[in-house]
Design a protein around this nucleic acid. Structure first.
Lengths: 355, 355
DNA sequence: CTGAAAGCGCTTACAG
DNA sequence: CTGAAAGCGCTTACAG
């Protein structure tokens, strides 16, 4: 059924059908009702392609998950037999929350995952083909930034989750960031409260904004409390389980071991737990561990992991809402926001003040 | 840039541009090359809406996650403050694998999540609006079947994951199922091999095909081995963590406890672990537990959960591949396939033959 | 307030 | 082999 057909049935022109559907003013209530009723009765839905082609919005956004490898290491996602594994604690909540919020606002979402520069070209094609009205990017690093900035220059509405806000000066976009710094400060302050004076850290890939900020938070909090980070107590990981494992082996292989380790994400904490078990040590009796992300898995570890919650739900919802608002207002926003970070106390940190 | 503009630059008509892009035969190599080069140089991409409107395929499919509540219980997904939680071990790998496979085949995917009958109407709109060329449905139950069957009757290409294949007789679609029965048989046979003679079960919501089949597999395997399922050893859960917890409390609250429990999915196994710990019992010393799904979390439990892997990756890839093939061949397939089920031995089952 | 008409950018018979 | 033209189903000035 086309608008033409419906128009005939109702006895109006198809212009009127369009006007009712798109909520134009100055239509008598009677006409509006008649049309609305006919739409319902005949189950009419305007052809999306025709609308878009004629200049209306598509009500479609894309969510782009970037996991472009540099130095051969995927960051948040593991691959097996050339396909992606389901262990994806970083991305998958975001997909759900973005979809949910977009649907609530009556938008559809296309999902796109890029593992390589080649995939990135496909992402660009989505824009070139005018399939979408805007997009949310997550997990950007260096190589893809240029493409994203080009898109912004071309006038596309874009939201960036977890991207260095420095760019906001030159590129109008919606920047929604994790409050890595605040989270890290809270984590380290908590350890200090519990009496820890010798604290180690396993960092993420320091090319990532989030990894660097988490490290900064730790360093400054230690300094602020007159404590020091021994170079033996810092291990540069890459946010993978394996690097958490290696980090522990490395850090605890020193004469003066720290009493606590700040592990920069929960995925690495899993590896850390394994290494600690292998060394015959217990958490938190022998060593305290604090994670970051409050991922799904963290509460199921033994002992349950104390960690930092970074309100992924809020971030995803906020980015989606702002993006759609910018689309509807037909202008690029320039907004920088940060999420909250909350300490989630569980059982992996020991109070050593009485020791 | 429109095809018209490009045509002028190259010195051909826009028909020729189209023909090259869509790989028509009978174009001299020289012309083809010239056009291809210009496309590359000017970064031309045909407008998706225009293509679709003119009758070409959109190269777009939808993946629809159905979690329509009946009797107030969401099945695979938990909600908090009216939004969906990230704990989604059932759906999220599927999203990733489908997207991945579709992208490989040069298709885009729209993701849609339905929690209510109202949401379902939105899903239908995606079809009515001609946004997509086909869709994959996951998690169907009763209420939504009718809508899906209508869609099939209208000629849409549809793949159904984990839906009763009985419908294949009357509705041409691609049915890809978990091999619940085989998996359940393998799980129970393994327990019997280890010497267990008294085996309990916590089922899923028996309205779901998967729950019923898993129960059937257990019953028939027991029978086949001359064993019996005591009614005290069956608890009807609903695939949620809480029901796993309650199931254990219920089943172990009998004078003659089973030595092993088959928990119908890994999520319920998490609850089962908690209940067992509360009862002061140990896994597997006091009670053996076997799960189902081989979800992300299962290997991180303490002890690591023995479970059944149902090759979600294969299922998702297969459904996607077949759906796209049916779209490209412009006809509805009628195919029923089952995935493999593999026993994953970990540490939650005890060999009690020597006891 | 409302209709007729142009136009969005493609694809696909139709001719030649 | 290739171009001119019709048509896909909308939306949006333009008139009235």
């Amino acid at each position: 059924m086309r608008s033409e057909d419906l128009a005939k049935l109702v006895g109006v022109s198809r212009s009127t059908i369009t006007r009712v559907i798109n909520n134009y003013p100055d239509i008598p209530q009677a006409t509006r009702d008649k049309v609305l009723e006919a739409i319902k009765e005949h189950n009419y839905a305007p052809n999306a392609s025709a609308r878009k082609l004629a200049g209306a919005t598509n009500k479609m956004i894309a969510i782009v998950l970037l996991d472009v490898k540099d130095d051969g290491v995927t960051h948040h996602v593991k691959m097996t037999d050339d396909t992606l594994i389901s262990n994806n604690s970083y991305f998958s909540p975001v997909i759900n929350f973005v979809t949910d919020q977009a649907n609530k606002m009556d938008y559809y979402v296309i999902i796109s995952i890029a593992y390589s520069k080649d995939d990135l070209k496909k992402v660009k094609r989505i824009f070139d083909q005018k399939m979408i009205d805007g997009a949310i990017f997550i997990g950007t690093q260096e190589p893809e930034n240029e493409m994203i900035f080009d898109l912004i220059k071309q006038g596309h509405n874009i939201a960036l989750i977890d991207t260095n806000e420095v760019h906001s000066k030159s590129h109008d976009a919606i920047y929604i960031n994790l409050n890595n710094y605040e989270g890290s400060v809270k984590a380290v302050n908590y350890l200090i409260e519990l009496g820890h004076k010798s604290i180690g850290i396993i960092t993420g890939n320091l090319k990532k904004l989030s990894a660097q900020e988490r490290l900064d938070g730790l360093k400054e909090t230690l300094q602020h409390n007159g404590l020091e980070l021994s170079s033996h107590h810092l291990f540069q990981g890459d946010f993978t389980e394996d690097s958490g494992y290696e980090g522990v082996k490395h850090i605890l292989d020193t004469p003066n071991k720290p009493t606590a380790i700040f592990v920069s994400n929960d995925t690495m904490a899993i590896g850390a737990y394994k290494a600690i078990a292998e060394l015959g040590l217990n958490i938190p009796e022998d060593i305290s561990i604090i994670g970051f992300d409050n991922s799904f898995i963290s509460s199921y570890l033994t002992p349950p992991l104390t960690t930092i919650d970074i309100s992924f739900a809020d971030i995803a919802k906020r980015a989606t809402t702002l993006l759609i608002e910018s689309i509807e207002q037909k202008k690029q926003f320039n907004i920088v926001e940060k999420s909250k970070a909350t300490l989630i106390k569980r059982e992996s940190c020991k109070d050593i003040r009485k020791d």
